[in-house]
């Protein structure tokens, strides 16, 4: 594929299970395409250089910075954003419930990034030491709540999930 400056390139993104055929400039960041082309403004943009973690989404199942990837590179990828967490009927994902219960957010700006970074690991949080869990979340910055509630929430989520699915 070769695309001239300012020309649009056709790409296909699967976001939260929905396939989108889009036209993007190669220099457009994945976070901006999610927000501006697809209207998925849950993915937040803080620093645009990989440090804050607000823009973290899952790309093919792994957490990654959507500010450090061009949408054109993500062509064909399977992306999950915070909008994909709660169910269609509005019922919160167990991780979201846990953040609410354990005071894991205040202003909420960092929350989508934390949720997406925690998504691949919360089910095995019980097997992780506090150090290991903090290491896994260490790439996410929160400027208001502090991390105690956030770590407690990630620890609690699996149990909440088990409770949810109990008969």
């Amino acid at each position: 594929m070769d695309v001239r400056p300012r020309e649009l390139a056709p790409i296909s993104l699967t976001v939260n299970g929905n396939v989108h055929e889009l036209e993007v400039e190669p220099r457009w960041l994945l976070c901006d395409v999610l927000r501006h082309q697809l209207g998925l403004t849950g993915t937040h943009v803080g620093c645009e250089h990989g440090v804050c973690g607000c823009c973290t989404v899952l790309i093919d199942g792994r957490p990654a910075r959507s500010c450090l990837m061009f949408a054109v590179t993500a062509d064909g990828a399977d992306i999950r954003t915070v909008e994909g967490l709660a169910r269609g009927d509005g019922k919160l994902h167990p991780l979201q419930t846990a953040f609410r219960r354990h005071h894991g957010l205040q202003c909420g700006f960092c929350t989508p990034g934390f949720l997406m970074a925690a998504l691949p690991i919360y089910r095995r949080a019980g097997a992780l030491s506090d150090d290991e869990l903090r290491e896994a979340l260490g790439g996410q910055l929160c400027r208001c709540t502090g991390y105690v509630g956030i770590v407690a929430a990630v620890r609690a989520a699996a149990e909440i999930e088990a409770g949810d699915s109990a008969p």
């Binding site: 070769d2 695309v3 390139a9 190669p26 220099r27 457009w28 960041l29 901006d32 054109v72």
Partner: peptide, 11 residues
């Protein structure tokens, strides 16, 4: 900020 325009190649 955002990147300046560039020609893109995906070999």
């Amino acid at each position: 900020m955002k990147p300046a325009p560039f020609a893109y190649h995906r070999p």
